[in-house]
Design a protein around this nucleic acid. Structure first.
Lengths: 289, 289
DNA sequence: ACGGCTACTTGATGCATATCAAATGGAGTG
DNA sequence: CACTCCATTTGATATGCATCAAGTAGCCGT
């Protein structure tokens, strides 16, 4: 079975997700892997250098090193030029800051340049349900389109920077550039499919399977961004993981400990090292065999 | 809190969903209630007469009595005319038949004219996760856009008829008619928001709350289509309900029995009569207070 | 370096729901 | 009409995770 390409495929070999079920893919998986970092880099630098290494800090998609993660490929230079009008500005968000909140008027989509976000819906009594974690190259804000108001909170889990894209620009350009139109549709469809996978996870899997699925998904997405397949830093708390996976923080902690005892992973606070990738996959696959 | 408009609002009074959390709304809630049946009709006729009562069986959106459920409002007659080109044909599906299956090439979206569908993802071993139930006026097939292959099965739970819309037509017309473009975006965003609500339900609610939420959601959607607020026919089995809600069929059955004993509903097989709508809401709201 | 805070870990216990099992009852069919 | 099949109901038992409760450890700012 599939956790997007997690089980057995390299994400870089596939244009789009395929197969069925359990698609926990990132909100906006790249159409093609970004080659910016050929070699996995030390985990400590996980989000260190998303700024263009070359020179210009111009707000322009055409020379953004994340463009292959968040934009359609195969545009003409002319179209690329047009696209630069899509991003109105950039915005920095401090750790813990809200990019937007539930109820806010919706006018913008955001492309994450650096940093890590969570999105969550909150009930009146303040309990929150984390609906996703988003990283560089992914687009957030889609929840607001339906009602012109945001339906959830988007909160930075570390200092972050986003490209601010007025949705009206996106729509205007989409009408002019069919490839962009298709891309926008795919991003939204991908999010629908991802949530289908989360539903499967929440409805059918046990705690160990959920956590394995979660780790494998993060690893895959980080790997697509040039990071190691064998280590990662969790940007979120145990409680946030638990919220996303439908379990209590104590259960998350216990499950980490269990994996650790079994020699599958090594847990040092938020630093996770994968010692036995195959075993992790096996636990995940257990849910379907 | 909100189950879309379920708790305290009439769907007909609101253009789009608002508030936050727990949005179990239908995939494509109408922008405006369809006035085709001013009075609630006997439950027995729930899907009897969706065909145009007047005369023409022409495949045309412009004279479809569901157009206010599935199309944007406020189009000029000229634009309406254009829209008629969106639907290539109609297709009848027998109960139990697949409209599409996981892995099928994606080329079409479908607007449900009559009947009732479920969508589900299936793992290799054949276990299925129901990801949604869809009724007249709702659009299905969006899952296929991201990968040009369908990611789930769409199965008719009763004899059904759909409008077949080549996605390329939809995209072409969207570029010409901004209001249609916006509508398509809203439909996809609505599905994202709905799934957020299901995630909340699966991760945080107990069995009674889930079933109450499910019933209230169905009632609301049926009411928006002219049916009674106090009775409904379940088109799906206990097992399918359980799959959607992340519980076993026995638990679904027991919970129905419990509601019945408490005088909240009356259960006669698949026929459900709501005796105490408020108490049902209270159970649902319990999850957030 | 200190105190205080939050995140995390670990243990003991309880409960909601799953699981296993059996019986009932419509619906459809020959 | 009898028979079969499948959906559903109901009961008894098992179990995975939540809950309650300490205790530990890293982190932050003074």
């Amino acid at each position: 079975m599939m956790l997007n390409e997690i089980s057995g495929h390299e994400v870089s070999n596939h244009q789009e997700s395929h197969g069925h079920a359990y698609n926990l893919a990132d909100t906006n998986r790249p159409s093609r892997i970004v080659p910016m970092h050929a070699e996995p880099r030390p985990i400590e630098h996980q989000q260190a250098d998303a700024k263009p290494a070359d020179s210009s800090f111009k707000v322009a998609c055409s020379n953004c090193n994340l463009r292959e993660l968040c934009l359609p490929v195969g545009l003409s230079t002319d179209e690329m030029q047009q696209l630069d009008g899509m991003v109105a500005t950039r915005k920095k968000i401090k750790q813990g800051g809200h990019l937007y909140s539930s109820g806010d008027a919706f006018t913008m989509l955001y492309a994450i340049r650096t940093g890590f976000f969570k999105t969550c819906v909150v009930s009146e009594d303040g309990r929150e349900q984390v609906t996703g974690f988003q990283m560089a190259g992914e687009i957030i804000g889609l929840d607001g389109i339906v009602s012109d108001k945001h339906n959830c909170n988007a909160i930075a889990l570390e200092d972050a920077e986003v490209c601010v894209m007025p949705f009206s620009h996106v729509e205007d350009l989409s009408r002019q550039i069919p490839m962009l139109q298709r891309h926008v549709h795919k991003i939204m469809s991908r999010e629908i499919v991802r949530e289908n996978g989360v539903m499967m996870l929440l409805a059918n899997m046990r705690a160990e399977e959920r956590l394995a699925a979660f780790l494998l998904n993060l690893l895959q997405r980080l790997h697509a961004r040039g990071y190691s397949k064998s280590e990662l830093i969790l940007r979120m708390t145990r409680e946030e993981i638990g919220s996303y996976l439908g379990m209590k923080l104590e259960t998350v902690s216990r499950t980490f400990s269990k994996f650790s005892e079994e020699g599958i992973i090594e847990v040092k606070q938020k630093n996770i090292r994968i010692l036995d990738h195959d075993k992790l996959k096996a636990i995940f696959n257990a849910s379907t065999c």
